[in-house]
């Protein structure tokens, strides 16, 4: 039992150390250059939605004047077999652009 307790103390020490001196733990190439970001609604549509909705897997969704709130809700909640998409995948700002792209008529783009 004593050994286990000792282990826990050491363990606890490491955490405190991390909280206090965390930069020292950083890995060498951890330069904060930004990760991937979507360019616009058309890109998201082409690289996610179109694979199903332009391929007779899911129903067509463009040029149907679907209400923006409805599109937003389906993207975030999924629907039946359609997976839900998290804000980590399509951030809120990009979702606005995507909804705009889907809900507007092709001629309006």
């Amino acid at each position: 039992m004593k050994i286990i307790k000792l282990g826990q103390i050491v363990f606890g020490f490491i955490f405190t150390a991390i909280l206090a001196i965390s930069p020292a733990w950083s890995t060498p190439e951890e330069t904060p250059h930004p990760g991937f970001a979507w360019q616009n609604g058309a890109e998201i549509y082409a690289k996610i939605c179109a694979y199903c909705h332009e391929a007779q897997v899911g129903p067509p969704i463009r040029n149907r004047e679907l209400p923006p709130a409805y599109i937003r809700a389906i993207v975030r909640n999924g629907k039946r077999a359609m997976p839900a998409f998290r804000s980590s995948e399509i951030d809120d700002e990009s979702l606005v652009k995507l909804v705009d792209f889907i809900s507007k008529k092709e001629t309006e783009h």
């Binding site: 930069p23 950083s26 951890e30 997976p83 839900a84 804000s87």
Partner: peptide, 30 residues
């Protein structure tokens, strides 16, 4: 909401998260 939907035949409540953390660096994860 997007973390809750599953395709499994059990109530989604069984696998409901309490929160989600969007970390981007190793230091944050530490």
């Amino acid at each position: 909401a997007p973390y809750i939907k599953t395709m499994m035949p059990v109530p989604d409540a069984n696998h409901m998260p309490s929160a989600a953390l969007l970390a981007t660096t190793v230091e944050q994860i530490q």
